[in-house]
Amino acid sequence: MSDALLSIRDLSITYHSQGRAVPAVRGVSLDIEKGGSLGLAGESGCGKSTLANSILRLLPAGTEVTGQITLDGKEVLGLSPGGLRAVRWTAGAIVFQGALHALNPVQTVGDQIAEPMSLHRTVANDDAAKDRVVELLRRVGLPAARAESYPHELSGGQRQRVLIAMALACDPHLLIADEPTTALDLMVQAQVLALLDDLKEERNLTLLFITHDLSVLTYACERLAVMYAGRIVEEGPAWEVFENGSHPYTRALAAAFPTIGDVGSRMAPSGLGGDPPTPGDLPGGCPFHPRCPLAHDACLPAEPELRISGEARSAACVLV
């Protein structure tokens, strides 16, 4: 696709810890066109955050990354250190999870928002940076005075808003939102989602949204990719995938959310049994087969590839 802002081809990421190779991402390809939005869903440990961090090459040293990541026309994995720094936060910025210690505790949030601006020289001087900080804070719904606050003085929702303002500081083309609503209560979650949605429209952002919460993704994104054990097992338009998944894992994820108005589903949301596989020790064949309600002999010989399962849809399951 020529109009893709982010294009990932055959990306594999392997961590090396204590002499053991742990494959976290195994041959993922995906595209997001300019102005588009893709939601990446999956359980903890499926490799979705690793994938997100690899786009700006933020993985720890010694991690093996192969494949191709093209962001804004630049081949990220081949960039020099200087070229990489120039791409970071301008071509793509990350909205980190606010519940984590993503903000430096001993600097004011204003300084932290302004830091990338002066670094990438997107503002003329310190005064202009201050003005822009105030403007960004207002845009995400925080009073200007909050620029002088330290992170510990803010609530979880406010911290998340600061992180969004920080990500917007240099007008990035791609916004990667890594679990931005996790650990927020439902009301605040909805506010943050609405904010991201507005910003996306208003600034023509391209969005890569990562979460384990499928219902959030169907709200925020046009397309949806479901990851399992380091691979994409299903991809397609968000609502179709959510309502009518082709892969049994997608259906299990979708079924984990109660349907509003359906009393039966609220009383007994159907969960998925078993634990996600350990990346270092995957089961043979389809990695999902030990937990799959539809598993049969055909799942065992080889890991299924992604194949077309409908219009603009694909899934990796022998039943498709």
């Binding site: 933020l58 720094r85 210690h101 430096n104 830091e115 670094l119």
Partner: peptide, 22 residues
Amino acid sequence: GEDYLTVARAKGLRDVRVRNRH
């Protein structure tokens, strides 16, 4: 091991500046 160092790197800071400022 803190996340704000990853954030600082993601912003495009040089390694030395990540160390000295954050």
